[in-house]
Design a binder for these strands. Structure first.
Length: 420
RNA sequence: GCGAUCGUAGCUCAGUUGGUUAGAGCGCCGGUUUGUGGUACCGGAGGUCGCGGGUUCAAACCCCGUCGAUCGCCCCA
């Protein structure tokens, strides 16, 4: 077949990743560490659908949020129903909690991880198919739940070896506190509307809280004097936040108050938090402008937006890609034994030897391609700890440095033991 | 959705004011040498210069479009 009659190779979808090698090892390390820590805190594993009815996200996240209004992968299925690839975990978990009657398990601690989808401009640490870890405590109104959830996040980051990252903590108050604060912010910023950035003039209509974390200098000079949530907190909301902070102190979780930290999605109440790299840290350098590696908060209003009973809950999500960028190089498992087949007549002996090694828990591979004279060089390039030579006479020797006892033990279990 | 930079071999990259048959290193395949923990040398395969159009006697190079990547804005984890 001539070359130009071959079909063109399709390209990968924009914003998707084919992860391989050290990057894939780092990704796996993040997930494995999360799974280990999850069990320490007795969060139960759940597996969730990758798609839901569109309304699950539209109703819970808020119709006007960017995620819903322009970032969702939505489509009609063959039955004409509008479905959406999940842009986040929380809404789907809330739906599952309601439709499966998981109230019987409340308070329910769950964790999961997997791919999410948002139609965004790809950038460092931001993809259209991305992956998150997720942890939620549903049906727990007490501030202890917030503390436990944050302690888990803090331990996770420590066990990943990530340093130079600090918990930024805020409260949005209860529903009434939040609304009063929001109204005060609108008043305050409306008075200087013409001096705000174009983006913030738009935020004033759609999401005034977001003006508080604007990076634009034109906005920032108004932030110091902007109304603070503390002035609008009810006594209960203030007591709740104090219980969270004192609990964190007792648990040894470092945190800083971030009065301007808000959440983008409508369903958040009370506790809001993000783990953010410290200014000038290696972590901040590695992440570029996508700086939040783990974020979340309390979402006491979410269940009602899905037609369920009022159900308090708190949760967080963390970007696996962003965490993987911070955990450093993760090498693939060390090759302990390379079986060098010196000529093709030794192939059967090689397979037998390999089977014995692997059954004995030895990381082993085979080198049997290319000219016999080059095989040794190619084997060496794989940097095995030991090279086991095989030819038509069978296994006949091992070379390499360090302890060979495990390998010898595995080999001696073979029907044909080495001559030496 | 907006802006900037960039697309040359499997990888990392050269390629002069536009000028013969587009190069190097690494990797891959083979040979010679070496002869058992990363030898040296020789040779080979591999590119419609992202894709499409335009300017020109002549385009990897200039212009337009498009797709993609990267980095910001926005959004968010």
């Amino acid at each position: 077949m001539s070359k130009n009659s071959q079909p063109k190779t399709p390209q990968a979808i924009r914003g998707t990743q084919d992860i391989f090698g050290p990057d894939a090892e780092a990704f796996a390390f993040v997930v494995e560490t999360f799974e280990r820590v999850r069990k320490l805190y007795r969060f139960r594993r759940i597996e969730m659908p990758v798609f839901e009815k569109t309304e699950v996200f539209a109703r819970s996240l808020g119709e006007t949020t960017d995620v819903v209004s322009k970032e969702m992968y939505s489509f009609d299925d063959r039955g004409g129903e509008s479905l959406t690839l999940r842009p986040e975990f929380t809404a789907g978990i809330a739906r599952a909690y309601l439709t499966n009657g998981w109230q019987q398990h409340a308070p329910l601690k769950v964790g999961t991880h997997g791919p999410l989808f948002r139609y965004e401009r790809p950038q460092k640490g931001r993809y259209r198919q991305f992956h998150q870890l997720d942890a939620e405590i549903i049906g727990a109104a007490e501030p202890q739940a917030d503390v436990e959830l944050l302690a888990m996040a803090d331990q996770l980051l420590k066990e990943l070896g990530i340093e130079g990252v600090t918990l930024h903590l805020n409260t949005l108050g209860d529903g009434d506190s939040r609304e009063a604060w929001r109204a005060a912010l609108i008043d305050y910023f409306s008075a200087v509307k013409d001096e705000l950035s174009e983006d913030s003039q738009e935020r004033l209509e759609k999401n005034p809280l977001r003006i508080l974390d604007s990076k634009d200098r034109r906005d920032q000079r108004f932030l110091a004097d902007a109304p603070k949530i503390d002035a609008f907190l009810s006594d209960d909301a203030r007591a709740f936040f104090e219980a969270v902070t004192s609990g964190l102190d007792a648990a040894g979780v470092q945190w800083v108050r971030a009065e301007n930290l808000v959440r983008g999605l409508d369903y958040y109440r009370h506790t809001a938090f993000e783990f953010i790299p410290d200014q000038g840290s290696a972590a901040a350098e590695a992440l570029g402008s996508q700086s939040t590696i783990l974020g979340g908060g309390r979402y006491d209003g979410l269940m009602e937006s899905l037609g369920g009973p009022a159900t308090p809950a708190v949760g967080w999500a963390a970007g696996i890609e962003r965490l993987a960028m911070l955990v450093g190089d993760r090498s693939e498992p060390r090759l302990e034994a390379m079986v060098l087949v010196e000529n093709d007549a030794g192939m059967s002996a090689a397979f037998q030897l390999l089977a014995q090694l692997r059954a004995g828990g030895i990381v082993a591979d085979i080198m049997a391609t290319g000219s016999p004279k080059k095989r040794y060089d190619k084997a060496v390039k794989q940097q095995p700890q030991h090279i086991l030579r095989v030819d038509e006479r069978g296994y006949h020797g091992i070379s390499g440095e360090g302890d060979t006892s495990r390998i010898v033990k595995a080999v001696n279990a073979a029907p044909t033991s080495p001559r030496t």
